[in-house]
Amino acid sequence: MLSFYCLVFCSLPVALSAQSQGVAPDSLNRRPPQYSLLRPVPRARLRPMSTDRPDATESAYLVDAGHFQVETDVLRLGRQRFGKQDTHQELGLNHANLKLGLTRTMDVQLVVESYTAQTERGEHPGARAGFGDLTLRVKRNLWGNDGGRTALALMPFVKLPTGRRTGNHNWEGGVVAPFACQLPHDWSLGSQLQATWVRDEATARHCLELAPTLTVGHDLYKTLGGFVEVAGAWDWRERGWAATLNGGPIWRVTDNVQLDVGLNYPLTKDTETTYFLGVSFRR
């Protein structure tokens, strides 16, 4: 898994070289108009809708200034097994990411865990359900938002412990660096590195978690595509990797509505298997 992490980030210089050769002519000849929250981008000039879901790799592109976008897990089912008897099951309903375009290079996001039900079975059985945590995120595009074959963004975030019955009742935060590259023949490549300052309940201290991903997408038809992704996380507490193989189809119903369904399949021991159904739309 360490070799996978090195491969993702050693490839960045090559991608940067491709970016310098693939800048759209319009971005060289004229300065983009200065749209903002109070001066929205005209609908005729909207970029193709780009979403942070359904893969774990966040998008390097933004919501257009003055426009609103919702991306939600309508239904999410997870199951995690520890040993032979202990299991953790989780049901999520309407875990939504609410996004608002502020400027040409920045948007703000609020992730809302509307309802979560968790069940523990085995040596320490129990059940809890209710409203979950809130996560505030700000995404800043560094390049590629308005043209070019590649794009890079930075997204700091902070998790607010608003869940009374679910969650770990602690403040957490970090930063995500998503990268995107457009490939020939309707293929796309994405990767990211996420660093999170997480709470360790056993030691009552915070520690660093690193989570690299690599995803490949392809358009099968004009309105139908799909993705395959490898997502990992290095846990400094356990000194080990957790990884999943993710994938599923994406149906672009209109230019402003998208449906998806997929699976996160565990590649390592004690890692959750997750099924999800989602929808995204833009106004």
Score class of each variant (00 low, 15 high):
T215C: 12
L77F: 12
L75N: 01
D146E: 15
V158C: 06
D64R: 00
N97F: 03
L224Q: 11
L98R: 07
A24V: 10
V41G: 00
Y275M: 10
R104L: 12
G173N: 05
P13Q: 14
V63Q: 07
Q34M: 10
A44W: 07
L134W: 13
L224Y: 10
L28T: 03
R121V: 02
C10Q: 12
K269F: 09
F68R: 11
A56K: 12
S36G: 10
G174K: 11
T57V: 13
D146F: 09
L75M: 13
R239N: 02
A180Q: 12
P184A: 06
W241S: 00
W143H: 06
L93K: 02
D26R: 13
V63P: 04
L136W: 10
G130R: 06
R31H: 10
V176G: 02
L193V: 15
R137P: 05
K139W: 01
H169V: 11
N170S: 13
T273M: 14
R30K: 15
D107W: 02
R31I: 15
W171A: 05
A129C: 05
H169T: 09
T273N: 04
E120A: 13
G83W: 10
A153W: 01
D260C: 05
L28N: 04
G163Y: 12
S27G: 03
L160N: 05
G174I: 11
A15F: 09
L220D: 02
E172L: 14
R164M: 13
F68G: 04
V158P: 03
L2K: 01
F4D: 04
P161F: 11
N94L: 15
W197A: 08
H67D: 01
L16E: 14
R205I: 07
H88G: 08
R76M: 11
A211G: 07
C6Q: 13
T87K: 14
R39V: 00
R31N: 10
R140C: 02
G132T: 01
Q80T: 08
N141M: 03
R79N: 11
L263P: 07
T273F: 14
K222M: 03
L220E: 03
D146P: 05
F227D: 04
G278S: 05
G126A: 02
G130W: 09
F4W: 08
N246I: 05
R39F: 01
G122L: 01
T72H: 08
A18Y: 10
G66I: 00
S20C: 12
R140S: 02
E123D: 08
E172P: 08
H185G: 06
T274P: 03
R79M: 12
E58M: 14
V108D: 05
L7P: 01
A60I: 03
L134C: 09
Q69F: 03
L102V: 01
T72W: 07
D86N: 14
H67G: 02
V279D: 00
P212E: 13
N29S: 14
M49W: 06
L93P: 01
P249K: 12
E238I: 07
L16D: 11
F82I: 11
H206P: 06
G22A: 15
D200G: 03
V74D: 02
G101C: 02
E58S: 15
V176Y: 08
C10M: 15
